[in-house]
Amino acid sequence: MRVSAKAFAVSLVSTVIFAFGAAPAMAEAPVEDFSLAAVQPATTTVSQSLDTGDALAGAPIESVLSVDEVAHVPHHFDVDAAISLAESEVGTSRATGWNQPGECIMSAQRWIRAGGGNWGGGGDPVSNYDGATRVTLAQAEPGDVVQYEYVASPTSWVTGVHTVLITEVHDDGTFTIIESNNPGGSGLVSKDENWTPAPPAGFQAAVWRF
């Protein structure tokens, strides 16, 4: 029996359609349907915006952290004893690394505590000063601690964070300071008699008083 070309074509197409329809479901790769997301109303309220524009751009950390504007806030420790220990260590070196005595902040803590200072704050460059009073650089006095903070994330330990102890304030606006671990990794305690804060780009100098 001869089959017309048209009938043959119809039969062939039907066979192919049946074959695909009868294939096991697992034979087809799953497709996720995102159509519902596409038809959400354009007026859906955004719960939170992370775009602060220029609201905080370049804002000093003083606008975020509490700053004491009082002309004079007393120290609550023996400043002379703290400075005496720091002076005695100038030229010596200690081990560096996390929580090691040669690190800059660990040395500053050692000196302040030698004078009875209650330096027992947390583990970052801000919470470390719980219990201290933040003052302006113009109010800085011997016994104050200068902490370089990373403005974008003050609580982060990033390269550039540094701590020094002010031991003298000069009429020309400079300071004498004692610091440890400068250059980094040396653990060396050194003295600078003509110092002014020079934090790296993106950092600022915070002054704390215990």
Rank of each mutant, 00 (worst) to 15 (best):
R2A: 05
V3Y: 04
A7E: 05
A9L: 09
S11C: 11
V13N: 06
I17M: 14
F18K: 15
A22R: 13
A23H: 06
A23R: 09
M26S: 13
A29Q: 10
V31L: 10
D33R: 08
F34T: 10
S35E: 10
L36A: 10
G53T: 08
G53E: 10
D54Q: 13
A55C: 14
L56V: 14
A57D: 15
G58Y: 13
G58D: 08
A59F: 09
P60K: 08
I61P: 05
E62D: 10
E62F: 15
V64W: 14
L65M: 13
L65Q: 14
L65V: 13
V70S: 15
V73D: 10
H75K: 13
F77Y: 12
D78T: 01
V79Q: 05
A81K: 04
A82M: 03
E87P: 01
S88Y: 15
S88K: 13
E89Q: 12
G91H: 07
G91L: 05
T92E: 08
S93R: 05
G97F: 05
N99M: 11
M106N: 05
A108C: 13
R110F: 04
I112D: 00
I112V: 11
R113H: 01
N128C: 11
Y129N: 04
D130G: 05
G131N: 03
A132I: 02
R134H: 02
R134G: 00
T136Y: 11
L137Y: 06
V146L: 04
Q147P: 00
E149K: 04
A152W: 02
S153W: 11
S156T: 11
S156A: 10
T159A: 12
T159C: 09
V161D: 09
T163L: 03
V169A: 12
G173T: 10
I177M: 04
S180C: 09
N182K: 11
G184Y: 08
L188W: 09
P197E: 12
W208K: 06
F210K: 00
